[in-house]
Design a protein around this nucleic acid. Structure first.
Lengths: 142, 142
DNA sequence: TCACTTTACTTGCATTTTGCAAGTAAATTT
DNA sequence: AAATTTACTTGCAAAATGCAAGTAAAGTGA
């Protein structure tokens, strides 16, 4: 994993310095929408990420404070990743990306989610973000 | 420019098949927010894209219907790129990316834009999209 | 307790993508 | 007619990605 240095002062460019690749945001998606939290679960996603890339990206996400990494409560040989607040704040980005994709791709997008977003986008985003915050908290207090 | 084949049915993954790199969305940003429309203008952006990458990405954007390419009205040696409706529909994505970036990066984000988005996000997005549609139309009818 | 499995990686190497510098070519300007 | 602008292409080096195999700690079943 290489250190990231901003290419410019532009906020779009800055975000892409972290997430301008084919994989980082898919890991975020899995945490946000697919309730995944371990290396093995990320590895099993449909897109078939390579193991070295997954390890590299998880490192990056942790190093830059998008996720936390902790030993699992049940198994010491397992790590659990959770989104930080900084990561949770990317939910709107991922959802807009999903909405665009669903418009042009015969989609595996969840019908309930797309309906909820259509009815009340802002509210749906907040609900998802709060669920992710609670997940982190409940994990913390076990 | 390589042909793109979807890695999965996921709409997030599908969008990233096109825009999961460090440059494509910056060209879109330049068209959406910085009123740029020519090769030379894209080349002059702060991030300093390489000429071969720019050519490749413009090709991709045109091939997949995100932009149109036409000879400029004033100069036959110049091409003008404009966003298609499919491209304009990515405005929400770029703006969410910008909002996140502005939160974490001492930012070159336009104050007026960030204020307008804070006050009325949906309305601001629609206004920007309509401006882009009009730009295309006025160009068409000259 | 000892082999087997699960989980999370690392390593080595081939392929692909990106980056840089230089070159090309048509149109326009001087 | 020469210089400049505009939009690229080409060649090669460097970096990122992909694939297959290997490692190592922890947990499981006999």
């Amino acid at each position: 994993m290489k250190e990231i240095e901003p290419r410019s002062t532009c906020p779009v460019s800055y975000t892409l310095d972290f997430f301008g690749d084919k994989w980082s945001l898919l890991i975020m998606r899995d945490m946000m929408l697919n309730n995944k939290s371990t290396y093995g679960e990320f590895l099993n996603s449909d897109e078939k990420i390579a193991t070295n890339i997954l390890a590299d990206r998880l490192n990056m996400l942790e190093a830059y404070g998008f996720v936390t990494k902790k030993v699992a409560a049940d198994k010491k040989s397992k790590f659990v990743y959770h989104l930080t607040e900084k990561g949770i704040e990317l939910v709107p980005v991922v959802l807009e990306i999903a909405l665009w994709g669903a418009k042009y791709h015969p989609s595996g997008m969840d019908r309930e989610l797309s309906d909820a977003l259509e009815t009340d986008k802002a509210g749906t985003i907040l609900r998802i973000q709060n669920l992710l915050r609670n997940k982190f908290l409940s994990f913390e207090t076990i």
